[in-house]
C-alpha cells in the first residue's frame, strides 16, 4: 500500500511518499529516507499523560514513559495509567509502573507530588 509521511527531521517538512514497489519520493535529502524507514519498521513514541492522586490540592500528576514505546501500544499504556492512584507523596522521576507492558519503559512522574 502507498504510504505518505511528513518528515520531521528538519523544519522543511517534506511530504514523502513510499510507493507500493518500495520506492520513495518527495524527500529533498537523504535524511528523509532514514526517517521514513524507521517510521515504517518500528515507530516509537514517548507517551506523556497524567495519573490520579488522592490529594485534593493536586488531583492529577503528570507522568511519561522514560523511553519511547511502540506506537501501537500507546492506547494500552493509557489504559494501564487509568489503574494507578498515587496515595503517598512522591518525587519527580519516581517510578509509578515498572516496565510497562513489557516494553522496557517505566512510567515516571514528571513532577513532584505533594513533596
Amino acid at each position: 500500500m502507498k504510504k505518505e509521511f511528513i518528515c520531521i527531521v528538519c523544519p522543511r517538512g517534506c511530504h514523502i511518499t513510499v510507493h507500493e514497489d518500495g520506492s520513495i519520493t518527495g524527500n529533498m535529502c537523504k535524511r528523509g529516507i532514514e526517517y521514513v524507514k524507521t517510521e515504517m519498521t518500528a515507530p516509537k513514541r514517548i507517551v506523556t499523560s497524567t495519573v490520579r492522586t488522592v490529594f485534593s490540592e493536586m488531583p492529577r500528576v503528570s507522568v511519561k514513559t522514560d523511553r519511547p514505546v511502540p506506537k501501537e501500544l500507546i492506547m494500552d499504556v493509557m489504559k494501564e495509567l487509568s489503574k494507578v492512584i498515587i496515595t503517598t507523596p512522591m518525587s519527580l522521576g519516581d517510578v509509578v509502573i515498572e516496565n510497562i507492558l513489557d516494553t522496557g519503559a517505566n512510567i515516571v512522574l514528571t513532577r513532584s507530588c505533594m513533596k
Binding site: 514517548i46 506523556t48 503528570s62 511519561k64 519527580l92 514528571t110 513532577r111 513532584s112
Partner: peptide
C-alpha cells in the same frame, strides 16, 4: 535533552 514542561520548569 528532551523534557516535559513540568520537568523543564523544575
Amino acid at each position: 535533552e528532551e523534557y516535559t514542561g513540568p520537568e523543564y520548569a523544575e
